[in-house]
């Protein structure tokens, strides 16, 4: 049975490699799975007018965002033959080089996970009300725009 409840996708701060590793390990008992695919969004140290970004502070319309994540999840299960899907996004400050988005899909076969993962990430960028404040080393900031 697929889960039909709206879940909280948000985590405080960066998503640790330990958390990601444990998520992978938890799937060892699901032996119908033959392929996993993982997307990790990492905070980039962009340079703007000679200043470097040191972190992104994420905020969101959390209730709407979780509802949108749920919709994306449901649509993805309808479109692709997936065994399971996990999405986590950071809230609050995430430093450059740290992970802010973790999407993990699993299927019996590889082709489905390649297509599904790209679909999910693009949907998140377009439809989920999350806002990134890019913080510079000198404590000034600008608002992130997705390209």
């Amino acid at each position: 049975m697929k889960e039909r409840k709206v879940k909280n996708v948000f985590m405080d701060g960066a998503i640790s490699s330990q958390f990601i590793g444990e998520s992978i390990a938890k799937h060892q008992s699901k032996t119908t799975i033959g392929a996993h695919n993982i997307f990790l969004g990492q905070v980039r140290a962009d340079e703007v007018d000679g200043k470097q970004i040191s972190a992104i502070d994420y905020t969101a319309h959390q209730e709407m965002a979780n509802a949108k994540f749920f919709e994306i999840r449901e649509t993805t299960f309808e479109k692709f033959n997936l065994t399971c899907m996990h999405i986590y996004h950071s809230l609050g400050e995430v430093k450059t080089g740290e992970i802010c988005l973790f999407v993990f899909v699993s299927s019996p076969r590889r082709k489905e996970v390649f297509k599904a993962l790209e679909y999910i990430v693009e949907e998140i960028k377009a439809k989920v009300p999350i806002f990134g404040k890019e913080l510079f080393e000198d404590e000034s900031h600008q608002w992130k725009v997705n390209s």
Partner: peptide, 10 residues
Amino acid sequence: IALLPPFSGG
């Protein structure tokens, strides 16, 4: 209601 600037998740 909520006023939402352009989304920039991920």
